[in-house]
Design a protein around this nucleic acid. Structure first.
Length: 898
RNA sequence: GCGAGAGUGGCGGAACGGUAGACGCAGUCGACUCAAAAUCGACCGCCGCGAGGCGUGGGGGUUCGAAUCCCCCCUUUCGCACCA
């Protein structure tokens, strides 16, 4: 596939045993050990194991089959593989599967642009990427592989959809969508850029469509409260989800409309017909305590009352149209300006007899949140204040800040939103904000005008997509029976193969026959639903399917899923912090409530990795500069860079995310060809903590490569196996201490996801082995070196699995057990105790010297030794010691007077 | 605007409140070599000849002792963003 001859640089790796150069040839070793693992099915586990081992489920977010793996994949799968191999060595039965998130728009784009069928494009990409992943030497159970575009997968998703429907978790409702009139499809918010479709460039329209929704809001309370128990998730992600779900406590109250009084003849409207249904306007507020500070009521332009007003008042209609033309994204850009239109209608205050307030249509009120209507309290809400100042509305203050004088306190340009005491508020006067809220809600309830409510920001999940390459939504529309679920025995609803992409819109809709079916209920001609599922649905249950990937008769086999789930360690990018992870949490609850599984939280542990970045290069500053690939650039000793071929000067840009447009990508396949998988894995782990963004550098990879060679050389340098000697000399003992401390340190680092620290400890062990190589011969030293090299290999195995096998095979030519099947090394406790510890000696917290004492020495002895240390004694001369602090095995600190 | 992180040598980064800079990268010098690569050895925070002093974004504080804990500020990254 990839050819090494095109690589411009790289180490000269000759065949093993060549006269010069490194002896360890990864090109020979890596495929050999991959084949060995595969032949022995080292990483296969049963759906329902009977070996009694504790289970551990490691999962990395599955890839979209774009065609090639990228460095982000390499990092993701390396991190997961380290965990999987480590846990396996620790005695766990490890489930570590892989598959493909294979539906989605790029396949359709390829079909449109290049005439390749989406299925063909997708499967070719999967084949290419599978081959690349296999070259990484991952400890995967490939028998569980699937792609979400396989009917064998999506048929079960259709079954789940129908079960969710039965359980009331699926709804069909009208909703406003972003509609691209050129592509003839709904766009997600992220696909609308500056009010235009991201592909067509056409202005996006707001359109009301009937769409399928998952009722994720039904689970809002538990999706929020469970976050508190998810202590193995990053705090950041939990917070983001919490904000996204957006619980708020407040009140819902109904304002009665005041009778219509035509004090201004220019308002030609009359909504006082008894059956109009506009006699009350419901609002949501988190500040019922500020009700006496009301000065207006405002409704969203999409509010039904606004439409009713617009039908009678052309000026109002024009204002509403103006608001609608400002798309959602544009509104976000122009956040400052608030606009409104006075309807002429008025509402009564719930508590103040005879007081009425104007009803405005305002662009800053959102129909999607709360009730689409607010009461305006300008003194204590910044938005309301901006609006009131612009339209010269009253600003009565009703919350007095602590210490402020009620006679002089006034609102300027800033609303007062802090704590305080209610005033100008009749029965609320004197109460603090919280007490006033409760009192106001009680009063509203007593009058049957309102009640306390909990409001959520989370909206239901719209899953309809007018696209071909997705899971068909398994329902049929019948003119007589309405929406009819496809019966189980007619599943799967397969995508037709013979589709065309020569015109905009949904190919399923254009297909000559596919959508025409008979109603399963009454038998009359009916239509298939042509919407397909959002691809986030596919990824909302794949983790459970892996547990029983070959089951054909049902989506999930309970015994298997209940055994393996939840995922013990999930690893992926932070970009999925909200959508994928929240949808999966919802879906898992849905699967539980429809009887498919027992767990309700899918991912017990979550780790979010950083990105892989790289320098970018271009030929000149400004718009004329051409981006260059890293392999086109040659670094100069003076730090500048030039073009490898033309010699042109090159501008070295920022270190930023790898992207095709900036050409600062590094192809993992190329790296594996030149350096091997172990080198790539080692470098990616060693560079920095895995949760942070890392920089991919040529020098770093080369350094990692040198280390692989060095480890092999250390192994070649040790003698044949021998029984443990009775006595070990001092160099040997020193080495053995390092060896066993390294076992403890690397174990701890791996448990903590501090893989860069684990790498550092292994470098230290290698350095200690090198020191021992140079030491004079003594009894037991050879044995200790051999032990150290074995430990080095075995501790490195989760990171560099091929090299570890090669080293152990070298040391044990007749061995039949693979390192992949070895248990994790155990440190000998005796060797973790040093025979001497270095105590820092401080005077007034400043280091003045060190003393070496036996571990756990008595305080008196340590202090005496510290005072005797020449440098310390010198500094203490003539001073009065007022206090002597001794921290066992660590420090002595003298506090002196004067 | 709101919320949450992060600021440590030339770089990536280590460091239970206890010897700041482990380990790696880059660099300097040396050995080997006709030479280069590879390998090996030494050095490698700043000031100072030295003794020593100064150093973890800035300023305060707690403590015998602070990169670490607390308060204020600065910079920066990310998330949400007219959410009533």
């Amino acid at each position: 596939m990839n050819d090494t001859t095109s690589a411009p640089v790289g180490p000269a790796v000759g065949p093993a045993g060549a006269a010069d150069g490194p002896r360890y040839d990864f090109r020979d070793a890596e495929p050999k050990w991959q084949a060995a693992w595969s032949e022995r099915a080292c990483f296969a586990v049963a759906d329902v194991p009977t070996d009694g081992k504790p289970k551990y489920y490691v999962l990395e977010m599955f890839p979209y089959p774009s065609g090639k793996i990228h460095m982000g994949h390499v990092r993701n799968y390396t991190l997961g593989d380290v965990v999987a191999r480590y846990k396996r060595a620790r005695g766990f039965a490890v489930l570590h599967p892989m598959g493909w998130d294979a539906f989605g728009l790029p396949a359709e784009n390829a079909a449109r642009e290049r005439g390749i069928h989406p299925a063909k494009w997708t499967h070719e990409n999967i084949d290419a990427m599978r081959a690349e992943l296999k070259r990484m030497g991952l400890s995967l159970d490939w028998a569980r592989e699937f792609a979400t575009c396989d009917p064998e997968y999506y048929q079960h998703q259709q079954k789940l959809f129908l079960d969710f429907m039965k359980a009331g978790l699926v709804e069909r409702k009208e909703s406003w969508v972003n509609w691209d009139p050129v592509d003839g499809t709904v766009l997600a918010n992220e696909q609308v850029i500056d009010g235009k479709g991201w592909r067509s460039g056409a202005p996006v329209e707001k359109k009301q469509l009937s769409q399928w929704f998952f009722s994720i809001t039904k689970y809002a309370p538990e999706l929020l409260s469970a976050l508190d128990t998810m202590d193995r998730w990053p705090e950041r992600v939990r917070l983001m989800q919490s904000n996204w779900i957006g619980r708020s406590e407040g009140a819902r109250l109904r304002f009665e409309r005041a009778p219509w009084k035509p004090d201004n003849a220019s308002f030609p409207i009359d909504l006082d017909e008894p059956d109009a249904g506009y006699d009350k306007i419901e609002v949501y507020t988190t500040r019922p305590d500020t009700l006496f500070g009301m000065s207006f009521l405002a409704i969203a332009p999409e509010h039904p009352l606004a439409a009713a007003v617009g039908a009678r008042d052309p000026k109002a209609a024009a204002f509403i149209a103006e608001c609608r033309s400002m798309g959602t994204s544009e509104a976000a850009i122009e956040t400052a300006e608030k606009h409104g239109h006075d309807t002429g209608l008025r509402v009564k205050h719930p508590f103040i007899e005879g007081a009425t307030y104007p009803v405005w249509i305002a662009n800053f009120v959102l129909m999607e949140y709360g009730t689409g209507a607010i009461f305006g309290c300008p003194a204590h809400d910044q938005r309301d204040l901006d609006f009131a100042r612009k339209y010269k509305l009253a600003v009565p203050p009703v919350v007095l800040p602590p210490g402020a004088d009620p006679a002089t306190f006034a609102i300027g340009k800033e609303a007062y939103v802090g704590p305080g005491t209610a005033y100008n508020s009749e029965f609320l006067n004197g109460l603090d904000v919280d007490a006033a809220k409760r009192a106001a809600i009680d009063a509203l309830a007593a009058r049957r005008m309102g009640e306390g409510v909990t409001n959520w920001r989370l909206r239901d999940w719209g899953v309809s997509r007018q696209r071909y390459w997705g899971c068909p939504i398994p329902v049929i529309h019948c003119d007589s029976c309405g929406v009819v679920p496809v019966p189980d025995d007619q599943l799967p609803v397969r995508l037709p193969d013979d589709v065309t992409f020569d015109r905009p819109g949904n190919p399923l809709d254009h297909h000559p026959t596919w959508k025409h079916v008979d109603c399963p209920r009454c038998g009359k001609p009916a239509r298939r639903e042509t919407d397909t599922c959002d691809t986030f649905v596919d990824s909302s249950w794949y983790f459970a399917r892996y547990c029983c990937a070959s089951a054909t008769d049902r989506p999930l086999v309970r015994a298997a899923v209940d055994h393996w789930m939840p995922v013990d360690q999930y690893i992926g990018g932070i970009e999925h912090a909200i959508l994928h992870l929240l949808y999966s949490r919802f879906f898992t609850r849905g699967m539980k409530d429809t009887g498919h599984i027992a767990v309700e939280e899918p991912f017990a542990g979550l780790f979010t990795q950083g990105m892989v970045n790289h320098e970018s290069y271009r030929t000149a500053a400004g718009p004329n500069g051409m981006w260059l690939y890293p392999e086109e650039v040659e670094k100069q000793p003076d730090g500048t860079a030039r073009h490898r071929v033309t010699g042109e000067p090159v501008i070295v840009g920022r270190v930023e995310a790898m992207s095709k447009s900036r050409r600062n990508t590094i192809d993992p396949g190329d790296i594996i060809n030149r350096y091997g998988a172990d080198t790539a894995r080692w470098f990616i782990l060693s560079d920095n903590p895995p949760e942070r963004d890392m920089e991919w550098t040529e020098a770093g990879v080369a350094g990692a490569f040198r280390f692989t060679q060095r480890v092999f050389r250390l192994a070649e340098g040790v003698g044949p196996a021998a029984p443990k000697p009775d006595t070990v000399g001092s160099h040997g003992r020193t080495l053995r201490r390092v060896t066993h401390k390294t076992i403890a340190a690397v174990t701890g680092a791996l448990e903590d996801f501090a893989f860069n620290v684990a790498v550092a400890r292994l470098y230290e062990l290698a350095n200690a082995i090198t020191d021992a190589e140079r030491a004079a011969a003594e009894p037991g030293l050879d044995w200790a070196r051999r032990e150290a090299v074995e430990v080095l290999a075995r501790l490195s195995a989760p990171m560099m699995p091929h090299l570890a096998e090669e080293v152990m095979a070298l040391l044990h030519p007749d061995a039949t057990t693979l390192v992949a099947d070895f248990p994790w090394p155990e440190a000998e406790p005796d060797l973790l105790i040093a025979d001497s510890v270095t105590i820092a000696v401080q005077i007034m917290g400043k280091l003045r010297g060190t003393v070496a004492v036996p571990p756990d020495s008595a305080a008196d002895a340590v202090i005496a030794a510290a005072e005797a240390e020449p440098n310390v004694a010198n500094a203490l001369a003539g001073k009065r010691i007022v206090r002597r602090i001794h921290v066992p095995n660590r420090i002595v600190n003298f506090v002196i007077a004067g």
